[in-house]
Simulated scan of single mutants.
Amino acid sequence: MATDEGRGSLRNLLQRLTASEAEIEAQELRRESAQCGGTPAGLCRRGEQVSISGRLRTVVYTPRTNLPTLEADLYDGSDVVTLVWLGRRHIIGIEPGRQLTVRGRVAIRDDRKVIYNPHYELELPR
């Protein structure tokens, strides 16, 4: 007769064996974000001051005539938040695949969550 603990371990093993790479990555990112004390991006609402920990998916420089911007999509396993640094063309360490924790106020632009000029801390590679 199997114990509840044994069934839980078997269930976790089966889930990991049948999960896609994206699902496994999302689970790991959610776990890491929780360890850092971050707010899940999926729970963030407009106007909230939040701290989010995740991995940068994309980083794009957008040249504009009056104000250039550097934009990056931060994914924490639950949702994506776009980070926008106004007047910046490049920030050392802000690159795809980099882990970081950001703090700032959530805004909504084109039905997407955005944090303008967030305070950020680069995390050590994992």
Rank of each mutant, 00 (worst) to 15 (best):
T3N: 11
D4A: 12
D4I: 07
E5S: 10
G8Q: 11
R11T: 05
N12D: 15
L14D: 03
Q15T: 03
R16C: 05
A19R: 13
A19C: 12
S20C: 11
A22W: 05
A22V: 12
A22I: 11
E23C: 05
E25A: 12
R30S: 15
R31I: 10
E32N: 07
S33F: 02
A34G: 05
C36Y: 08
C36W: 06
G37Q: 12
G37S: 13
A41N: 06
G42V: 09
G42A: 11
L43H: 09
L43D: 14
C44N: 03
C44Y: 04
R45T: 12
R45D: 09
G47E: 06
E48C: 05
Q49K: 13
Q49A: 12
Q49W: 07
Q49N: 14
Q49E: 14
I52R: 02
I52L: 15
G54M: 06
G54R: 04
T58N: 08
V59Q: 03
V60R: 14
V60T: 15
T69M: 08
L70E: 06
L70Y: 02
E71F: 00
E71A: 12
E71L: 09
E71C: 08
A72F: 02
D73C: 02
D73W: 00
L74I: 12
Y75C: 01
Y75T: 00
D76R: 06
G77T: 07
S78M: 10
W85D: 04
W85S: 04
R88L: 07
R89V: 01
H90D: 04
I91K: 00
I91D: 00
I91G: 01
I92C: 00
G93Y: 04
I94R: 02
I94C: 07
E95L: 06
E95P: 01
P96H: 00
G97H: 04
Q99P: 00
T101L: 13
V102H: 03
G104A: 09
A107N: 09
A107Q: 13
A107H: 14
R112W: 03
Y116A: 11
N117P: 11
P118F: 05
E123F: 03
L124C: 03
